Simulated scan of single mutants.
Amino acid sequence: MILKDRQPFADSISSAHKIIPQYRFSSCDFARAEQFVAYDNEFAAFGRSRLPPGRYARDGFCAQRVGYLLNGLRVVLGETEAYSFSQVQRPGLATDWGHWVMILRMRGWADVDIEGNSIRFEGYAVEVRHEDQSRCGHLSGGESLFLYLPREKFVGIERLLDGLAQAANSVRAHPLLGCYLGAMGRVLVNSTEADAVSLADATLSMVRASISYSKDAIAEAEMPIMAARFEFARKYIDRNIDSPALSPDGIAAFLAVSRRQLYKIFDSHGGVYSYILTRRLEAAFREILASRGECSISRVAENYGFTDMARFSRAFRARFDCCPTELRVMARREVDRNSFLCWLRGDGPETDVA
């Protein structure tokens, strides 16, 4: 069975509750010769674009941007081919929202001209600008994340953000911020509407902590961040609970964290291995119970990654104080004697009771 949620830009979850993008742009919606011009016009308020030497508009240009709204925070994921960008002053196009924007190159790099110096942003280096500030530079092909920060959510630390947006100070955001934003970008597309608030809270906490460089602030921000990461990991595990490929390495890759960070996330939950085992045992318990005593214990064990029946039975008894076969017998007896349970499950005839 293939693990779900492996590709960051893939629509791997079919759910009515998935976060719905508020904005989309795709150059694929235009004729090949019009793709680069369409991209340049769409984002002209933030600078003009030009193709690298040897490339022409008639060759086509692959680009997409998808925008999400997370409890007042706007996050944009973008993917483009290589191009150069330059400053522009075009009255009437500049915005006046008072936002800052943080840019992370999730894949690839950007060489940005800041006061005559070319600064490369790649890896976990975060570029900070005022939202209406354009710069010159070159962008490699790749993926980027844009986080727009409304001024009203950062009362009291506006000067810190303004300082980061000026000149070479842009390279001084704490590296933990880039690590967090990269992880958020990779889980965002597979998040649900219910995740939006916790994700926004964790992001605001991380931004505040990372720009202040306060150890206390960073420590304080860890709690909502860890909670959000655990929630994403929990949902990933539940979606892949019947996959034999489910492993700590796969979870760490999905969250874009190291194994050490993953162990820290699960530290208060008994460890990642113990958590996966518990969730698999609970899933097996529910399946045996739902089968009303008619299931094959060996098939249930195999469905949830247990190849050793003796080990499965021992772990099951340790968790539920009964072995799988005992649970199956109890489930069968309950169905046989409990007419109310049959009625709840829709097994009995629908009759009116006077």
Rank of each mutant, 00 (worst) to 15 (best):
M102Y: 07
H174S: 07
S298G: 13
R135W: 12
S27D: 01
L70N: 00
F285I: 00
R24H: 15
V272Q: 00
L93F: 10
L177Q: 03
Y275N: 05
D5R: 09
A301K: 00
V75R: 03
A228S: 14
Y213S: 10
Y148K: 12
A253S: 13
Y83N: 02
G270T: 08
N117A: 13
F320K: 03
C179I: 06
S15Q: 08
A219K: 07
D308M: 09
A219V: 08
P21V: 07
P224T: 12
I13M: 12
H269V: 11
S274H: 11
W97L: 14
S134Y: 04
F85S: 02
A167L: 12
A38I: 06
G270F: 04
V257N: 02
A245R: 14
A200Q: 05
L149S: 02
T203P: 01
M1G: 11
V128T: 11
L3Q: 07
L246C: 11
R50G: 06
A310P: 09
G346A: 09
R259G: 03
E131F: 04
R48S: 10
E302V: 05
V257L: 05
D96K: 06
Q7R: 14
R314V: 13
N41L: 12
Y263V: 14
R259W: 06
M223D: 15
A200M: 05
A38H: 06
D242F: 03
V88Q: 09
S212D: 03
R345E: 13
H99A: 09
R332D: 10
V189S: 07
L344Y: 05
M1C: 12
Q64G: 08
H130L: 14
G47A: 03
